[in-house]
Every structure is written in C-alpha cells, then in structure tokens.
C-alpha cells in the first residue's frame, strides 16, 4: 500500500513514527512493559547465571573460584559487572514479584479503578526499589 497518504490516521499501535509513541507514558504502561522486560531478563541472564553458579558449585572449588572471579575483584568485593548484574537481577526480581502480585490481584477483577490502578502501579516500583535497597544494605552491613 505504497500509495497510502501518510497523514491518514493509523490504527493505534505503539509507534506513530520513528521513536514517536502514540501514547503518553503512564505508570500502568511502564509497569506492564517492566513486567515483561524483567521477566525476560531473569529468564535469560538470570537462568544462565543461576545454572552456571550451581554447576560451578557442583564442579568443585576451582570452578567456583573462576565463577566468582568474573564478578569480584581480587579483594573479594564486587566489581563493576558484579554490581550491574547483582543490582539488575535483584531489582528485576522484586519488580517482577511486585507487578506479579498486582497481576494476581487484578486477575480477581479488583483494582481497576483509574486512581487505584495508577497508585498500585506506582507502588510496585516504589516497593521494588525499597526491597532492592534493603537487600543490598543488609548484605553490606553484615
């Protein structure tokens, strides 16, 4: 349909042009896509790391040491990659967990009122960040 005039309105899809969204971002949209992104991130990066960690542990001390060396400095503290992966995965977990709880609540038909829905969406992100911070502060203070 090359002859279609570009000015005609198109069916409401995500983009109306290069990086031009048809929608104004709202918390519900953001939480919805975050649920998918965090789920996909954990399912791919998280799975590979979990399996590598368990396999290295089963393979013995040398294999476990080479796993640790990828994410830590010679002093044993986390290096940049360790921090990015560590905080990224924990934040993903808590965000997915909170927006997952939101999904389970909404599955019952509850919390669809405009204001409640918006507050609930924002709350998942606030709680996820708080839990991530609490987790790492607890590890750091031990």
């Amino acid at each position: 349909m090359a002859s279609r005039p570009t000015s005609r309105p198109r069916s409401p899809h995500l983009f109306s042009g290069f990086l031009r969204l048809n929608y104004r971002w709202g918390p519900q949209m953001l939480v919805s896509i975050l649920h998918r992104v965090t789920g996909d991130g954990m399912a791919t990066v998280g799975t590979v790391l979990l399996v590598w960690w368990l396999a290295a542990l089963a393979a013995g001390e040398a294999a476990y040491a080479s796993f640790r060396d990828v994410f830590t400095t010679s002093t044993g503290s986390l290096n940049l990659l360790g921090w990015v992966i560590g905080v990224g995965l924990t934040l993903s977990l808590f965000q997915h967990m909170m927006s997952g709880i939101r999904h389970l609540v909404m599955d019952t038909g509850a919390a669809f009122e405009l204001k409640t829905s918006k507050t609930f969406a924002v709350a998942t992100m606030v709680v996820a960040i708080a839990l991530t911070a609490a987790f790492w502060l607890y590890l750091g203070m031990k």
């Binding site: 799975t47 979990l50 399996v51 368990l54 396999a55 542990l57 089963a58």
Partner: peptide, 20 residues
C-alpha cells in the same frame, strides 16, 4: 530445549552437591 537443558544441569548440580 533451553528450558529442559538448563533445568537438567541445575537439578543435577543440586543433587550432586546435596548427595555428594
């Protein structure tokens, strides 16, 4: 394939540590 392969490695690793 990805799911079954990664799950098999993870389960084997856990059992190996737990029963070893």
């Amino acid at each position: 394939l990805f799911t079954v392969a990664t799950a098999a490695i993870a389960i084997f690793a856990i059992l190996k540590v737990a029963l070893g």
